[in-house]
């Protein structure tokens, strides 16, 4: 990680990401009104992950990081995914 590296990201990219985030929020709200039953939580988590991913990738410059850092970020994400998955084995089948 070199702080001297300045990555020029165009305003267009930022705007596109921003609009994508807004749209995903809109989807979350509208999906909440449909009663998807067991899948409601799954959709909410999927959309939230997509949004967090966009923020990390573009706004927090993960795109320009070394592969090791990207890999390390995967460790807690995978841990969480497995933990949430196991919890849902309980919730879904209860």
């Amino acid at each position: 990680m070199n702080e001297q590296d300045n990555h020029i990201v165009t305003t267009k990219t930022f705007a596109a990401v921003w609009i994508a985030l807004l749209m995903l929020t809109a989807i979350t709200v509208s999906v909440a009104k449909m009663h998807l039953g067991a899948f409601s939580a799954f959709t909410a988590i999927a959309i939230a992950s997509a949004k967090a991913g966009l923020v990390l990738w573009y706004f927090m410059h993960l795109k320009y990081e070394k592969r090791l850092l990207k890999f390390l970020l995967l460790v807690p994400i995978l841990t969480l995914a497995v933990i949430i998955g196991l919890t849902f084995v309980d919730v879904w089948y209860r």
Partner: peptide, 22 residues
């Protein structure tokens, strides 16, 4: 160690599938 926490809750009313996996 991350994947076995459910064994503290076998009598808490978890689903049977979860109990078997844990």
């Amino acid at each position: 160690g991350y994947l076995v926490w459910g064994h503290h809750m076998f009598t808490s009313g978890m689903s049977d599938e979860a109990r078997m996996i844990f």
